[in-house]
């Protein structure tokens, strides 16, 4: 058994940042149906252990490929690029980020205007889509640029998480 196959190969998908989400979801379920430990509840210990390893791998692979950010990080990893902990980023990008943070704080201070928050999130989603498109392009042409774009994606994703937290707070979840 080869646990070193890349995550795309596990699902029989082409190594491409643009993943067919429906197909990935289908393949994920088909695979789990075959390898999940429950299928081997009455099996030998060896089968149980293998099933556990496979099911874990399939879960990890699915989580990595399903969401844009981990998928992007994984694409870099396949090309031998590991992310840095404190990357140098262009000052203009960082200024933009500070701006966006402030916008979010203002929404919170304004007793939480939900409409404003909604348009903020839409803006973020748009920005994420733009960075993703750029990333896909840069991946084969300019790996350094692709790496930088992942850092941008990380920042934007964190902002989205903060926006969701704020929404939860405002809606009293």
């Amino acid at each position: 058994m080869d646990f070193n196959r890349n995550y795309f190969e596990i699902f029989g998908l082409p190594v491409d940042y643009a993943v067919a989400e429906e197909l990935l979801a289908d393949r994920f379920l088909e695979l789990q149906k075959q390898v999940h430990p429950d299928r081997f509840a009455a099996g030998t210990d060896q089968e149980k252990r293998l099933a556990m390893q496979w099911a874990t791998l399939v879960n990890t692979a699915n989580e990595t490929l399903r969401a844009p950010l981990p998928r992007a990080i994984y694409m870099l990893e396949l090309r031998g690029v590991a992310l840095k902990h404190n990357p140098a980023l262009p000052p203009s990008f960082l200024m933009d980020q500070i701006d966006l943070r402030e916008q979010l704080e203002e929404i919170e201070e304004d007793e939480g205007d939900l409409e404003e928050l909604d348009s903020f999130r839409k803006k973020m989603l748009l920005a994420i889509n733009v960075v993703q498109a750029k990333f896909k392009e840069a991946l084969d042409e300019d790996i350094d640029k692709a790496e930088r774009l992942v850092y941008e994606l990380q920042f934007l994703s964190k902002l989205m998480v903060s926006a969701s937290r704020l929404e939860e707070k405002l809606l009293d979840y």
Binding site: G12, Q34, V35, Q46, E47, L50
Partner: peptide, 19 residues
């Protein structure tokens, strides 16, 4: 044998598919 069976099961899940 267990390992071979598991591989076969995985192939079955993706049966008839190629890239």
């Amino acid at each position: 044998f267990a390992s071979l069976r598991m591989d076969a099961a995985v192939r079955k899940a993706l049966a008839g598919r190629n890239i």
